[in-house]
Design a protein around this nucleic acid. Sequence first.
DNA 1: ATTCTTACA
DNA 2: TGTAAGGA
Length: 134
Amino acid sequence: MRSSIRRSMPLFPIGTVMKLTDLSARQIRYYEEHQLIHPQRTEGNRRLFSLNDIDRLFEVKDLLDEGINMAGIKKLLLEEGKTVVHSDLKDEEGKGKKDFTDEEVRKLLRKELINAGRFQRPDSSFGEKFRKFH
DNA sequence: ATTCTTACA
DNA sequence: TGTAAGGA
């Protein structure tokens, strides 16, 4: 299939994920405890989230808005999780979910790099834009 | 400046 | 879930 960057590649620190998903660090870490996401760690023990982790976070957020509790969310996402967790080479097959094109990924990464070396900037639209890819 | 873990007036 | 504390 197309030449895409593996969606499970560790890329963003928790701060970025917070802005993207509009979830608190507390919530993100809590969902990790519940095996809903599996961010990797850097040598310094910092979490690095992949695009798959972020997708999952959005799903969790949606389910939460629908009034579903952790137990329910885990039951729903954990099954599918078996596919996502080990999806280094393939993860969209049979799930009906679109994959990011290299250009889309590069676009996101570029934005990250640009904002990485600058002060604090309140961004409220990126999360929605990102979400639109779904 | 950021993120991490632990714990709870 | 928020938030403070103390270290990396």
